[in-house]
């Protein structure tokens, strides 16, 4: 088996500890060198509102510009650096669905630490689904999250999100709504999973929909910030 990112052969060393632990063997899908490229964010010092990596645990400059919201915060796993950019290019834009395995285990582990009643993935719009063939977020999650009950309104994106600047992004309108059949959210804690938190506009709109429908609190979980 080769590393999914650099295609070099992967070797797993079987340690005695592992053998005696009676756990199933977890084979890594990326090599240690590639994995080191991703910088994990320390939750202790990250911004408590958006999960940005910082040296001091205080509300960051971006978040101070948002109206204070006590029922929502975001947590991010990794910094958005060049390795992450390359990853998203290959995964989302080139469409290499195999790469979902890179963050699957890590995301699953983090999700298990969060006490959530409902987990939902940010949907992609139908046109993207037609060409890309998959939702990058549900790829990471096991299956079953968001069985179509959180939907996007706009059927086509006129301009790609990635090409917009902060100002344009903040001016976008609410793209989400709940489908007619959706689980009861009253008094529940909802976790929304997305790929990247950039300005926070998208995930905050999604959180707003949840809160309007009676959710107690909403936690955002993104792979990158």
């Amino acid at each position: 088996m080769n590393c999914l990112l650099c295609q070099r052969p992967l070797t797993t060393k079987l340690t005695l500890k592992w053998v005696l632990s009676w756990q199933p063997i977890v084979r890594p899908v990326v090599c240690s060198l590639c994995w080191q490229g991703f910088r994990p964010i320390d939750r202790q010092t990250a911004c408590p509102d958006c999960g940005r990596a910082q040296l001091q645990p205080q509300v960051c400059r971006d978040c101070r510009r948002w109206p204070t919201q006590t029922q929502f915060y975001n947590q991010a796993l990794f910094e958005y650096n060049s390795a992450m950019q390359a990853y998203f290019k290959a995964y989302k834009f080139q469409g290499d669905f195999r790469l979902r395995a890179v963050f699957q285990a890590r995301l699953k582990q983090t999700l298990s630490t969060i006490k959530a009643d409902v987990v939902v993935a940010i949907p992609v719009n139908p046109a993207t689904m037609q060409t890309r063939g998959f939702n990058q977020v549900t790829g990471w999650l096991a299956a079953g999250e968001n069985d179509g009950w959180l939907v996007t309104l706009a059927t086509t994106k006129a301009i790609k999100q990635a090409t917009k600047n902060r100002q344009d992004r903040l001016l976008t309108t609410q793209p989400f709504q709940l489908a007619a059949e959706h689980p009861d959210l009253t008094g529940k804690t909802v976790v929304i999973v997305d790929d990247v938190y950039t300005t926070g506009r998208t995930i905050r709109y999604a959180a707003m929909v949840m809160l309007e429908n009676g959710a107690k609190s909403v936690i955002g979980l993104t792979v990158a910030r």
Partner: peptide, 20 residues
């Protein structure tokens, strides 16, 4: 891929070939 679709992961750099 989801929904019983398939793609080729070997020649991705030339643009993705899939059942779509």
């Amino acid at each position: 891929l989801p929904d019983h679709h398939y793609y080729c992961y070997q020649c991705l750099t030339l643009g993705r070939v899939s059942t779509l």
